[in-house]
Design a protein around this nucleic acid. Sequence first.
RNA 1: CAAGUGGACCGGAUGGUCGCCCCGGCUCGCCGGGGAGGAAAGUCCGAACUCCGCAGAGCAGUGUGCCGGAUAACGUCCGGGCUUCCAGCGUCAAGGCUGGAAGACGGCCAGUGCCACAGAAAACAUACCGCCCCGCGCAAGCGGUGGUAAGGGUGAAAAGGUGCGGUAAGAGCGCACCGCCUGGGCAGCAAUGUUCAGGGCAUGGUAAACCCCACACGGAGCAAGACCAAAUAGGGAGGGAGCCCGCUUCGGCGGACACGCACCGGCUCGGCGCGUUAGAACCUCCGGGUAGGUCGCAUGAGCGUGGCAGCAAUGUCCCGCCAAGAGGAAUGACCGUCACUCCGCGCAAGCGGAAUACAGAAUUCGGCUUACAGGUCCACUUGCCUU
RNA 2: GGGGACGUAGUUCAGUUGGUUAGAACGCUGCCCUGUCACGGCAGAGGCCGCGGGUUCGAGUCCCGUCGUCCCCG
Length: 150
Amino acid sequence: MSIPREHRLRKHAEFEVVYRCGQRHFSQALTAFYLLRPEPAEDGALECSRDPRVGITVGRVMGKAAVRNRIKRRVRAAVTENLGRLTRPLDVVINPKKAALEIDFQQLCAEVARAFEVAEQKAAFDAGKNARPQRERRSAQPGRLAARKP
RNA sequence: CAAGUGGACCGGAUGGUCGCCCCGGCUCGCCGGGGAGGAAAGUCCGAACUCCGCAGAGCAGUGUGCCGGAUAACGUCCGGGCUUCCAGCGUCAAGGCUGGAAGACGGCCAGUGCCACAGAAAACAUACCGCCCCGCGCAAGCGGUGGUAAGGGUGAAAAGGUGCGGUAAGAGCGCACCGCCUGGGCAGCAAUGUUCAGGGCAUGGUAAACCCCACACGGAGCAAGACCAAAUAGGGAGGGAGCCCGCUUCGGCGGACACGCACCGGCUCGGCGCGUUAGAACCUCCGGGUAGGUCGCAUGAGCGUGGCAGCAAUGUCCCGCCAAGAGGAAUGACCGUCACUCCGCGCAAGCGGAAUACAGAAUUCGGCUUACAGGUCCACUUGCCUU
RNA sequence: GGGGACGUAGUUCAGUUGGUUAGAACGCUGCCCUGUCACGGCAGAGGCCGCGGGUUCGAGUCCCGUCGUCCCCG
């Protein structure tokens, strides 16, 4: 991956959490799932960094292995260009569509940048509200430490 | 030169900027090196490797199937044979000769099954029409425990083929040639070829029907397997092993001492709190084992040049080389230059534009099959041109 | 990566040891019934059996190749 390792999602469980609890952003060539990671607990687990992390999923319906690799690499290059736009500890999962293979690279970059901006704004809004849960569905999330709204 | 068929091979080159994976260095964030294929694919075969099972043998099952060789092994490869097809030559015609292509190419004269419809009959020939003979009858015709497989018709297939003789009509009934079967000689390791003698022909097709014969095969697969090993729950072993006084409704309660644990305290003493007959709480140890991590994991039936042996597949020897190793998974993104093909403009030089396939390693090898833009070479056939 | 199943009308499925016309239900079309619709009745269309070869007289069935779909092993 051309994304540095500490900025990647590595485990199937991490992808699952983002899919189940995150919010979504749609555009012509891709769908982005994003989730603001909770603050690491103070008593321990300090290996959990504050860096943003990105994962890319290309399913089998997109084509054969060569086509899937091509889509993944184009999206990955666009992510590398725009990785600086993410400052908060966000987990983002990108599901490209078939259009990601065809469209101009500049346009693909613009879509990724737009998705990252939306995620940043949402994260800033939620953090400003004392990091209350972003969705009601998230109430079952084990890592929750913020108290409910008084 | 063009087209077709078959086979072999190539699968753009070279820079810049920003990044990714692995390895090696050190001044610890920099430097150096390496980074997809002929099919990496389908997972159709064969192996290496790993675990499980296993005295030996047999049965069952699966696979292969002309012969010989190559190989670690194979359903692969090489050579040879046979059959079929195509083209040419040759012949009155056939047999034949040359070249190419294809072939799951052992066995239905071991057994069993099946062969619809049509047809008399589909395999032990019960004869439909026809032909012939005999009997009856003037005749038409009728009848026969009659003969006959040459002809007709049916069918995918009809009981050796052609010709001559023969006969009441016919028939391998007899003969010649061809085919078939049996036995022998010769050539060959063999498949097989060739030749001689005998047999008058028995032996329809189907084994990608059951089956017979010969040979091979234990099962699962790197998500195999080995090691390290958190939290939680559970398992096993051991430790936890104090007495006195008072009251009592006999369940216990209260007090002192002792012990253990936690806190205050730099440490001892001390203070305070809790627990002390339940095999409880609690403590220690052990083993299994999940998440996770490491190994397996790339020096191998390895690749290249050359020599030798062999018709060849291939083997062997000398020298040289080390060539991806991830784990939500690297090998990329963008910008140039050049080459190749096509299109447009142009006499030309050149200019502009377009196209560049199939496809992406996941334990590793040997094959097969399938996909593939464009291009190169070789062999054969056909056509045209020149000499 | 590895191991297995299945492809038949528009849909869900049958199709026995190869045998001649491939069948059922629902759906579809037309007609009848009714004032109208539904229900019901009658009739009909619709398939190169995923694709390409082979064996056989004959293939949905047997064999080989290929394409697609689904399931299992973390």
